[in-house]
Amino acid sequence: MPDKPARDQTFSPAERDAVYRVIFERRDMRHFAGGAVPPELMRRLLTAAHHAPSVGFMQPWRFLRVASPVLRCKLQALVEQERVQTARALGEREDAFMRLKVEGVNDAAEVWVVALADGRERHVFGRRTLPQMDLASTACAIQNLWLAARAEGLGMGWVSLFDPIAVACLLGMPDGAEPIALLCIGPVHDFYEEPMLQRQRWASRCALDDVLFEDTWEQPLGSTGSKSTS
């Protein structure tokens, strides 16, 4: 019996274009315009994050809103402490790094801490040889939130300059929980036309072909003569 033809499940051209547009126009924002994010809009963003894929359907993400101005200031102080340590570790690039704006904790409308949940050792489906899949899954949730925020016209910045133990202690996290991101979310005056670090000549996006291999490491895609699946 012949296989039943697959049903066409592609989105309309306009819908498809919107998906690619939000991917290409997403930016890691550091400059915010204050304001507020309505609770119902914030919940939409968190719902998008919560619908991310996760290995073994473990859903390892936890989101903690930092509403207290006092806690925000303490978080910003921890970020600043790590910023200085990072600058020193960069050696000859220390001065250039210190000129970069790397966070907007006290400027954004919303600050959320994303953490890995405690008790993750119970989940071994897909993690027995790759325990870091809890981190990879949570990164997918952050990306979902980021794209949804951009589609809603909100900026978002992922801050990773902090000591996770200090942040976990500050926010009363249980043993085993691990903060991995401070997310600054809110209205912005403008989105950067290109990634900020590229605009500041700190780094640039490498060519796609430089990261595509086939069969063996560093063998360029398509070099074996087989049909490309890209």
Rank of each mutant, 00 (worst) to 15 (best):
K4T: 12
R7D: 13
Q9P: 01
S12H: 06
S12F: 00
A14W: 02
E15Q: 09
R21F: 01
V22R: 06
E25N: 15
R26Q: 12
D28M: 06
D28Y: 03
M29G: 04
H31E: 13
F32C: 11
G35H: 11
G35R: 10
G35A: 09
V37P: 11
V37R: 06
A48M: 04
A49S: 11
A49E: 15
H50Q: 11
H51I: 08
A52G: 14
A52W: 14
S54K: 00
V55G: 12
V55H: 01
V55M: 11
G56F: 02
F57W: 00
Q59N: 07
V70C: 05
L71I: 05
L71P: 09
C73S: 11
E80K: 06
E82I: 10
E82L: 07
A87F: 00
A89L: 06
A89Q: 07
L90T: 12
G91C: 06
E92R: 12
E94H: 00
F97R: 01
F97H: 04
M98T: 03
V105I: 14
V105Y: 05
D107P: 00
V111H: 13
V111G: 10
V113P: 02
V113A: 03
V113E: 03
A117I: 11
G119K: 00
R120F: 09
R122K: 04
R127D: 04
T129L: 13
P131G: 08
Q132A: 05
M133E: 15
M133H: 14
A136K: 01
A136R: 00
S137W: 05
I142S: 10
N144Q: 13
A149M: 15
R150C: 08
G155P: 08
W158L: 12
I165D: 15
V167R: 10
A168C: 01
A168H: 01
L171Y: 05
M173C: 07
G176S: 10
A177Q: 10
L183F: 05
H189V: 13
P195H: 10
Q200T: 14
A203E: 15
S204Q: 13
C206T: 14
A207V: 09
L208I: 06
V211H: 06
L212D: 04
W217C: 03
L221V: 00
S223I: 01
T224Y: 00
G225I: 01
K227E: 15
S228D: 15
T229P: 10
